[in-house]
Design a protein around this nucleic acid. Structure first.
Length: 405
DNA sequence: TCTCTGCTCAC
DNA sequence: CAAGTGAGCAGAGAC
């Protein structure tokens, strides 16, 4: 390793000790509101089902839906033979069957309440009045950090209900704001850099939206002619590429026939040949060495690359493709953290680094240090690694984490 | 009490 | 079989 792990220890120690302030009252109020919603949904669910049961039990729910109400002729099963009742299944049923729609609502509320709203206030440490996570730096397969007890790397943001929780993460006091700084499309930029694909690099040099650019290339239309549907598909393809896509996987996610998905992937590789070459090269490297590496030389061992079981082997091939990308992005933000933490200390600033969420850093920023901190954070993140691709950092600030985005 | 399963939250 | 990395909840069943 290009040694970022040892200096990072001190950064993480400080972040853990610092903690983050949480608005306990806001969460406690929200818990009551969610509880009311859940109670209402419960009644509706029992009425529609015609029987009371434990809605939180996937087993019981499956039996109600597929044995009692027979909402589907050939229900999908899980690995263990139970009826699958996951979000994808229920969403498909929701148009026809009120019960499915109600259960989706119920699950959304229950998830937020049990995992975040009721748990975070209990995690406030009495001595500091703040929530202190534990970061682990040598646990994940790719070199990413991990956060636990509580996990502060999966605080909701996608839905309106979830965003309420982000609003409860607040600045230290009235002299501070939260600063959020996140890398824009870091994994695709890293892939452009390590693959050296000229078209992908040019997209970032042009500063155009990468999903729109991919849509234009794959569909062979001008940027201005890209529809929202074309962009949506291209976004799926871009993410799929990073993960080591299959035509089947893409077809499932886009809801299109597998042959069409295969055509899209073929068109992608035609337009970004360097990406295809990178993938072949990386899988070959894994076969030869038994491991792959990130830009800082972090290794991931891939013994399954020689498995006689095709599914296992293909899984290892996807790991070979994904790990240098995800892991190099992790290398980059780790270097940025070390540099930024060093500068905050050296300049004796009051502002503090609080959280890392894979491509984002969150700070308590003293209002008098605004310009200086914004500059050193932005520079520290952008210049952490000297890549052949422009790196863009987006920053926002506010009294809470949601407004900082 | 412990472990596994199914599910869902994030990047 | 089928898109990568994680954490944590409740239910279910073993002990």
């Amino acid at each position: 390793m290009g040694e970022c792990e040892n200096p990072l220890v001190h950064v993480l120690v400080d972040m853990e000790a610092e903690g983050i302030r949480i608005d306990r009252t806001a969460l406690e109020d929200y818990s009551v509101r969610l509880g009311d919603e859940i109670a209402t949904l419960e009644k509706s669910i029992y009425a529609v089902a015609g029987v009371e049961f434990n809605i939180a039990s996937p087993k019981q729910l499956g039996e109600i839906l597929f044995d009692r109400l027979k909402v589907e002729a050939r229900p999908k099963k899980t690995r263990t033979g139970q009826y699958a009742t996951n979000e994808q299944v229920l969403t498909r049923l929701a148009h026809e069957h009120e019960l499915a729609a109600l259960v989706l609502e119920y699950r959304a509320c229950q998830k937020l309440k049990s995992t975040y709203v009721d748990t975070l206030p209990d995690a406030i440490r009495a001595e500091t009045g703040r929530v202190h996570t534990t970061f682990s730096q040598a646990v994940t397969a790719t070199g990413r950090l991990q956060s636990q007890n509580p996990n502060l790397q999966n605080i909701p943001i996608r839905t309106e209900r979830g965003r309420e929780i982000r609003r409860a993460f607040i600045a230290r006091d009235e002299n501070y704001v939260l600063l959020s700084a996140d890398y824009s499309q870091i994994e695709l930029r890293v892939m452009a850099a390590i693959s050296g694909d000229e078209a992908l690099k040019q997209t970032f040099l042009d500063g155009v939206d990468v999903h729109t650019a991919t849509a234009a290339r794959v569909n062979e239309v001008e940027i201005d002619a890209v529809t929202s549907e074309m962009r949506r598909q291209a976004k799926m393809v871009n993410f799929g590429i990073i993960y080591g896509i299959s035509a089947f996987g893409l077809s499932q996610r886009l809801g299109i026939p597998r042959s069409e998905a295969a055509d899209i992937i073929e068109a992608y590789f035609l337009k970004y040949p360097g990406v295809k070459t990178y993938m072949d090269r990386t899988v070959e490297e894994a076969r030869k060495n038994g491991f792959v590496t990130t830009v800082l030389g972090r290794r991931r061992s891939l013994p399954d690359i020689h498995s006689r079981n095709a599914t296992t082997r293909q899984g290892a091939e996807r790991n070979a493709i994904n790990t240098p990308i995800q892991g190099s992005a992790a290398d980059m933000i780790k270097l940025a953290m070390i540099r930024i933490h060093g500068e905050l200390c050296r300049r004796e600033l009051k502002s503090r680094m609080l959280l890392q969420v894979h491509d984002e850093l969150v700070f308590d920023m003293h209002k008098t240090e605004r310009d200086e901190v914004r500059a050193l954070v932005s520079d520290g993140m952008r210049e952490a690694l000297d890549l052949d691709v422009p790196i863009v950092v987006e920053m926002g600030e506010g009294d809470n984490w949601l407004d900082a985005h």
